[in-house]
Amino acid sequence: MRLPAQAAMRAMRPALDVLLSRALMLGGVLVIPVSLLLCLQWPLRDWLHHWSREANDLAQWLFALYVAMAITAATRARSHLASHLLAHRYRSRTRHALERAAAALVLLPFSLFLIWAGAPAAWQSVLQREGFPDTYNPGYFMIRVAGLLLAVLVALQALLDLLPADDA
Rank of each mutant, 00 (worst) to 15 (best):
I143L: 10
G139I: 07
A151F: 07
A146P: 01
P33R: 04
P33F: 06
R45C: 07
G139C: 11
L58R: 04
D57E: 05
L107M: 10
R76S: 11
A74T: 09
P109C: 06
P33E: 06
L85F: 14
W51E: 08
S52G: 12
F113H: 12
A104E: 06
L112K: 14
P120N: 09
A59Y: 02
A64M: 12
W47T: 15
A122F: 01
E130Y: 00
F141A: 01
S92L: 14
L62P: 07
R93I: 15
A121M: 00
Q60R: 10
N137G: 06
L58D: 00
Q157I: 06
N56K: 05
R78G: 02
W47G: 10
V67A: 05
L156V: 11
E130V: 05
T75V: 11
Q41S: 09
F63T: 14
L114Q: 00
W51Y: 08
A121F: 00
Q157V: 07
W42G: 05
A73G: 09
F113D: 03
L160P: 04
R45D: 05
I32C: 01
R45I: 11
L38R: 07
S92G: 14
R91K: 15
L37D: 03
V126L: 12
A77L: 15
Y140T: 03
R91A: 15
A102K: 12
A74K: 05
A55F: 02
T72W: 03
L48T: 15
V152N: 07
A70E: 12
I32A: 03
W61T: 08
A117S: 15
A158D: 04
T72L: 14
A101Q: 12
H50W: 10
C39N: 13
T72N: 03
P138S: 13
M142N: 01
V154A: 03
A70N: 10
A117N: 10
V152M: 13
F141E: 03
L153Q: 02
R93W: 15
H50Q: 11
T72P: 03
L160E: 06
W116R: 08
Y66L: 13
I32V: 07
A55Q: 04
A73H: 14
R144W: 05
F141Y: 09
N137Q: 13
I143M: 13
I143P: 00
C39S: 15
L149K: 02
D57T: 05
R78Y: 05
C39E: 13
V106F: 06
R45P: 02
A73Y: 15
L37R: 08
L38Q: 08
S83T: 13
A97Q: 12
V34K: 14
G147W: 13
S111F: 01
A102W: 13
